[in-house]
Design a protein around this nucleic acid. Structure first.
Length: 153
DNA sequence: GCCAACGTTGGC
DNA sequence: GCCAACGTTGGC
């Protein structure tokens, strides 16, 4: 499976990922998104790195799943904004994987362009009201975005 | 188990 | 900053 992961570039951008090389995807507090990381992602699977809440928002690059799932450490940290008082070390509630940097697109592909492409009309991120921070992406959609970006992996 | 109230996401 | 969409919470 391929994926799309959203991040606000003001908080953590594709450039930040390039700098640190690898990053634990902390702070996901949505069960659907968690389940994708916990139960479905396999190391080596590729993800479109998407900039949300940006000017403009859009597909910015590519990352790769770089770990097995493990408990999100921020859920146990009372000082973290992602602290969850209902989570325990014995029974963690939130799981994550690491992502490793793969590539940055020469130019960001704005959401507007993705939406304008008939080949991507069914891609989740193009749907109205799509809020999920981690989306599964069909291979044909992933390949299409790579083609638009002029990227050969 | 229903649903109103509330909170968050994210495009614009 | 606005607001549509939609997830979560909590009273009943």
């Amino acid at each position: 499976m391929h994926w799309l992961i959203k991040s606000e570039p003001d908080v953590f951008s594709i450039k930040d990922l390039e700098k640190v090389k690898q990053e634990p995807w902390t702070g996901v507090r949505n069960y659907q998104a968690r389940n994708f990381m916990w139960r479905e992602m396999q190391p080596g699977e590729l993800a479109i790195f998407y900039h949300s809440n940006a000017k403009p928002s859009g597909a910015a690059g590519v990352a790769v799943v770089a770990s097995e799932p493990y408990p999100d450490p921020t859920q146990f940290d009372p000082k973290s904004e992602y602290f969850d008082p209902n989570a325990t070390e014995e029974k963690p509630r939130w799981w994550l994987v690491d992502f490793k940097y793969v590539a940055t697109f020469k130019e960001l592909i704005p959401l507007e362009s993705l939406k304008a492409d008939p080949a991507l009309s069914e891609m989740l991120v193009c749907q109205k009201g799509s809020r999920l921070s981690i989306n599964p992406v069909e291979k044909k959609h992933f390949n299409r975005v790579m083609k638009i970006a002029g990227l050969k992996l």
